[in-house]
């Protein structure tokens, strides 16, 4: 079967199958940006590991950040099946030529932000990614199956942490509300611009990479999340929010903010990239040593 026949039959494309160059490029870009988001996402949460308020919470958070590093690893591997190299992709990230999710350019200023990220950001990521487990490219779909399982675990842990805060002392409740106030709109922006303004959507749909529109997924997230906020006794920071009998109608998203963050002018873009590039540069001598050692071992073996 040729490429289009496989796509039309809702089958899977595998690394050795023929595929249009544009399909390959689109996937490399999407998978790489996803991988970059995982590794940049380690920073805002890693920010609280050493300050986690109990040993149980510390262990949960360490395991979560470790999972993110793991997700990064297998997403870069999935991109490598398309002929890209992790080294080159990291270079594109470090030089600002590839992006990562805008959500990670917001600061985690309190412990409740860690809970809110688990609840809202992982929640939104799952809604975005579950359809990707049926994506037409096999290695990406399989990576997503594993990622989604782990993220749904993170989402439950985040919600549980948020529950404890919202049932806690007045200061803890305030912390929880403040986190929801700051993360709600950025979480809605994670689904990307409205369908009319999303240039690559139609082609990705035709290729079976994307299954639902940005607006459909965003609505699914809002519908799932508003009742959870009610359960927590927290107020969603959207005065226009209302139930129309089928869905929760939400207010206007500030796309000016989204595009500013996308362009590099979010509160933490510079900090995240600076941190990432420094870590990479600080580790250069270690990677060089590992290569030099491996070369010596190969020379000895000959």
């Amino acid at each position: 079967m040729g490429f289009q026949e496989v796509i039309d039959a809702d089958g899977r494309i595998e690394p050795r199958d023929e595929m249009p160059e544009a399909y390959r490029k689109t996937l490399v870009r999407q998978i790489a940006q996803h991988a970059h988001s995982e590794i940049i996402g380690m920073q805002p949460e890693g920010n609280w590991i050493t300050r986690a308020p109990s040993l149980r919470r510390k262990v949960i958070l360490v395991a979560k950040v470790q999972d993110e590093a793991g997700h990064g690893l297998y997403l870069y591997s999935a991109a490598e099946t398309l002929g890209a190299s992790r080294h080159d992709l990291l270079d594109l990230l470090h030089t600002g030529r590839q992006k990562y999710s805008t959500i990670f350019n917001y600061p985690t200023t309190s412990w409740a932000d860690v809970a809110a990220i688990g609840w809202l950001v992982d929640g939104a990521a799952i809604v975005n990614q579950v359809p990707l487990t049926r994506c037409s490219y096999g290695p990406y779909a399989r990576a997503m199956t594993r990622v989604c399982k782990e993220e749904s675990f993170h989402q439950r842990q985040g919600f549980e942490a948020m529950t404890v805060l919202s049932r806690g002392t007045p200061a803890q409740r305030q912390m929880a509300q403040d986190a929801l106030d700051r993360w709600w709109w950025p979480a809605l922006m994670m689904f990307g611009p409205s369908d009319a303004e999303s240039p690559n959507s139609a082609q990705s749909m035709a290729w079976g990479i994307k299954r639902f529109s940005n607006d459909e997924l965003r609505q699914r997230f809002v519908d799932a999340t508003v009742p959870q906020a009610d359960y927590l006794g927290l107020t969603v920071p959207d005065p226009t929010l209302s139930w129309d009998g089928e869905h929760y109608r939400y207010g206007e998203i500030d796309w000016t903010e989204f595009f500013a963050v996308m362009k590099g002018d979010g509160p933490c873009n510079r900090q995240r990239m600076g941190f990432r590039v420094k870590a990479h540069e600080d580790g250069a001598w270690v990677r060089e040593a590992a290569e030099a050692y491996a070369a010596k071992q190969r020379a000895k073996a000959i």
Partner: peptide, 15 residues
């Protein structure tokens, strides 16, 4: 966390 020389080491050190 997030500071190690390569991704494999982020996994290993946190482990």
């Amino acid at each position: 966390a997030a500071r190690s020389p390569q991704l494999e080491e982020d996994v290993a050190l946190l482990n």
